[in-house]
Computed example of a mutant assay.
Amino acid sequence: MFRTCAAGAALGLLATPLAAETYDLEALRAATEKYRDVEVALADGYIPDPSGHCVSAAAEGLPAELGAMGIHYLHPALLGLAEPGDRVDGTGTHTDFTKPAILLYEPQADGSVELVGVENLVFAKAWAEAGHNGPPEINGRLWDAMADDPATDADEAHGFTDHFDQHVWLFRENPAGPLEPMNPNVTCDHAGH
């Protein structure tokens, strides 16, 4: 769905990864368990996506049955975010999922948030400058290549410059698989409550 040959070609990268990592998902869950408490995440430098947007498949022009990602809490230093511009850009090449650059929270009816997964994102230009000629890989899966196609009305890169990203659903089972971008068991129904 998100991983397309066109996106990879648009990024000018080969399909062979140079940064293949294998993680035990139970060990990852244990390493990130503390972030179930959003206050711990805030104290460790994570901030809610400034847009306040809860990402759902339907809002992204995709079939609603794909579910959602939730609200992204970003760690600006791990992402190496640049000064604000037309698109979010940065120098981030961080791939360590034991200290993820992004935490995914589902909004709850009572106004709280529940940790459902983690994510890392590397900016394509910085990644290539670091000597990589393909996307990172986790547990045999290439990260998703995200590049905006100016020929469409959609924003395929979601406001970011060209990048690779990878979601890992550690705290909410994903029937599509633990490494897929959207999770049918996550909802944005309570966003803004």
Rank of each mutant, 00 (worst) to 15 (best):
G8C: 11
G8R: 07
L11S: 07
A19Y: 05
T22W: 12
L28N: 02
R29G: 00
A30R: 03
A30G: 03
A30M: 03
T32I: 09
K34H: 01
Y35N: 13
V40G: 01
A43T: 03
A43C: 07
G45E: 01
G45N: 12
Y46Q: 09
Y46V: 11
D49N: 14
G52E: 01
V55Y: 12
S56F: 04
A57T: 02
A64P: 06
L66G: 01
G67A: 05
M69C: 00
L74A: 07
H75T: 00
L81E: 13
A82L: 09
P84T: 10
G85D: 11
R87Q: 07
R87G: 05
L104D: 04
A109W: 12
D110R: 11
G111F: 01
S112W: 11
S112T: 12
V113H: 04
E114Q: 14
L115T: 03
E119Y: 01
A124I: 07
W127Q: 08
W127S: 08
E129N: 15
E129D: 12
A130H: 09
N139S: 14
W143F: 13
W143E: 01
W143R: 07
D148E: 11
P150Y: 03
D155Y: 11
D165C: 02
D165T: 01
H167L: 00
H167P: 09
L170G: 05
E173K: 08
N174V: 13
P175C: 10
G177F: 14
P181C: 04
N183R: 05
P184T: 14
T187S: 08
D189G: 11
H190W: 08
G192H: 02
